[in-house]
Amino acid sequence: MHERSVVHSTFTIERTFNRPPARVFAAWADPGLKSRWFGGGTDDAPIGLDMDFRVGGLETDRSEPGAVPSSGYEARYHDIVPDERIVFTYDLSLGGSLVSVSLATVEFHPAEGGTGTQLIYTEHGAFLDGLDDPELRKNGTGGMLDELGHWLERQAATA
């Protein structure tokens, strides 16, 4: 039995790309382009992103059959302003449990002093108790110990 919990979080990532806003926007709007960067699939094996890029349209991405734990991504587009803004919500599930629901905005601004694009990705998420599964918690701890190993390597490298 899970302990019920909700954790809210907001984060923002800013990037500047050396391409005009229309080109950067197209990489979000074109399924062929988006599948090349979104899910971590390679050019040889793009992920199975099923997207309907219009207001009210849905987008789904599922882990390969048999993946453990299985994961699911489901998004809905709420606002699309070509070359300027995309607003969408998405939820993630892991092993059949809903683990988070997020509101994301992507803003495309002309970069200062050039033809590039400043992209601002902001996400507000509610992270649910489905994650506090003991097995996942253990894996989380294991992951933390892995990170510890990397951190120690970095420390050794800079010493």
Partner: peptide
């Protein structure tokens, strides 16, 4: 040590890798 905390960190990392 919460998985939620890790998850949030991973979300961010996931999007950084995507970008």
């Amino acid at each position: 040590l919460s998985v939620a905390g890790r998850w949030i960190q991973e979300r961010r990392t996931t999007w950084e890798r995507r970008l």
